[in-house]
Design a protein around this nucleic acid. Sequence first.
DNA 1: GAACACAAAATTGTATACAATACAAGTTTC
DNA 2: GAAACTTGTATTGTATACAATTTTGTGTTC
Lengths: 232, 232
Amino acid sequence: MSRSTVTPQSQPATSDSIARALSLAIHEHRIAPGTKLGEDELAEIYGVSRTVVRAALQGLSHVKLIDIRRNKGASVASPSLTEAHEVFEARELLEPRTARSAAARATPEDIALLERHIADEHAALEAADPGRALYLSGLFHNEIARIADQATIAGFIETLVARSSLIIALYWRRESALCEKHAHHALVRALAEGDATQAEDLMRSHLVDLHSALDLRERNARAPSLKEALSQ
Amino acid sequence: MSRSTVTPQSQPATSDSIARALSLAIHEHRIAPGTKLGEDELAEIYGVSRTVVRAALQGLSHVKLIDIRRNKGASVASPSLTEAHEVFEARELLEPRTARSAAARATPEDIALLERHIADEHAALEAADPGRALYLSGLFHNEIARIADQATIAGFIETLVARSSLIIALYWRRESALCEKHAHHALVRALAEGDATQAEDLMRSHLVDLHSALDLRERNARAPSLKEALSQ
DNA sequence: GAACACAAAATTGTATACAATACAAGTTTC
DNA sequence: GAAACTTGTATTGTATACAATTTTGTGTTC
């Protein structure tokens, strides 16, 4: 049954679960920027009507992971270079402050969780699963925002981190790991020590470093078929 | 005909136009926090099917102007005190930087537009239309963000300004004008002179001032009927 | 009057049918 | 061969019907 293949629960897919699945696929680069997201195709994949798919697509559109053009349909967003710079600028403005707050609030459980994220990211890289590593790398940033306990700003950061995965798909220049290993380790150390100023500075330079790794040339990547990308 | 009363155009209302109309009504305090937004009722008011209304409501939900609970419907959001503080904190983080950028970029046309906003706001206050004044006051902030030419951050600010109107409806303590007259004038002067540091400082203190005007007690306001509020 | 049970009505969630628009393929004209 | 036109197909936008859930109203019991 198509449902149990794509959504391993006994319940029908909801718009929320579909949006989450698509978001994860985009984040892990299983769906490339520019990929057309047809309503009928997704409805068939998830075993629901177009109504539910449309709601999911609208949700994704609001966080700018996809573009919906009236009468023309939905596709995975392809941020322009300008948007790419804007996203990283916004992160450079928000995340250092968030790291500062997180350093003042982090519990040992928080630190342990962040360390597990780093370990999982490296495991994914060694398993030749860069998409998974990228997702976990982004999640690391989202977790710091959660620890900072400012939900409004954490929501913005989550959006920016998700969009970053699109930008990385299009503009990333380096061959190495996406977020360098030592940057995340150093951040966790600063959080563990409650060193707010250090955490803030480290986060700022980490993001400036990421921003500097954007390439000025656009790239194209072969897009796997939609069904292929979503069958996990 | 119901359509031409509420939407003075010959075309049927779209989900976008409905979302905009509702957003304006919320912003001007014609619809109060907590007001139930029934799909059938809105569908009748706007002369469209529930499908279009649902799309509009989803859009408003994504910017947190309304809350949608599964199986229970949509209502205008009532931000908690915590959310209120978060929203103003986020504004204090984003808007000073935006004012700084705007000061470096403002054209004479931009300045003239901002001055018109201030004049219109005062006219609205003298016409005993505080809702309109509030909307224009918020728009002033959105315009500065637009001048700063960073669409990603401007988008966040727009969301925060809209949510601020809900917060003001619930928590505002002062009887006087919502944004004090001289604060906006001083900002425009700093922008006109290209004084980035002054613009940044003025914006920060303006927002800190707004934040300090939040009351700790919640208030209730009589909610006009939905049709009444939307008939403009 | 309060609490409970049940039925009816209202509302929300979803599927499906139909209308509107865009796209692709084939044909005609220059 | 390129451009314009026509036709058929695919896709998106919307209304409507039906299913599922919640709310309201009514009656009964204590």
